[in-house]
Amino acid sequence: MPATKTADPQQLRHIAAEIRKSVVTSLAEAGSGHLGGSLGLSDIFTALYFSALSHQPDNPTWPGRDRLILSIGHVAPVLYATLAHAGYFPVEELTTLRKLGSRLQGHPGRDHGLPGIELSAGSLGQGLSVAVGMALAAKLDNKSHRIYTIHGDGELQEGSIWESAMAASHHNLDNLIAIVDRNGVQIDGFTEDVMKLEPLGAKWESFGWRVLHCDGNNMEHLLETLSRASESINKPTVIIAKTVMGKGIRDIEGDYRWHGKVPTKEQVPGFLEQIDSGQ
């Protein structure tokens, strides 16, 4: 059965808020993990799984599905929350995050059998290469599904990203859409202080990619950009999505110290309230 989808931004914002709340509660329960990036990506994941992607939650390995490769495994909480709300597994299971025996590993692990996980990943810089392999396979087999990837901006400092960027354009992989979470921060601070990435769009362009920019926390803008990305021009596409780390919770928005931090159980009610009131 196809996924429940909508093109209504207001409805999608409501779903994104529910996903954010699940991210907060599951991380507080886990006691460790990455809150900031997971919240910043919640709108993107919502736009993908509730609008752009062709997929079937009750048939996760449906051959015709669009594939989503999460290259930055540390934001697994937003992937898990999205998959649960989309119907891949019960939302209650989110509270098992990072616990012994859980299908919700700290970084996604296919070996634990969680439906909807395309790749076990967590070592940065590898997801785009795998996506190139999947996109090549689709071309060889004349299949029309797309491969989407999610990257951090700090992750782009890995050299292997640029090896795969080169390969994707060399092989004209117009079925590949990479999304960069451009929140401008990484563990040690601002990306431009740690290791400069700008001019980032020009870098991708010079590697032979179509570059689209968007506000990754604006639902209308996201839907429009994802729709433009799916118009083929014989090139791979990268969407540089500007996001705010910690988006949705005023107290932590933009604070890079929340990259690898989780809320205490006492903080949870306040955080959930801020998510609700911010919609």
Partner: peptide
């Protein structure tokens, strides 16, 4: 020639591409 994919001097990418092909049922 159609089943030979040139990826240049980029071993890390080659291994990742192989993983992607294998996930799609190929034998890289």
């Amino acid at each position: 020639p159609k089943r030979f994919i040139s990826l240049g001097i980029a071993e890390q990418n080659c291994i990742g591409v192989a993983a992607g092909l294998a996930l799609e049922g190929k034998i890289p």
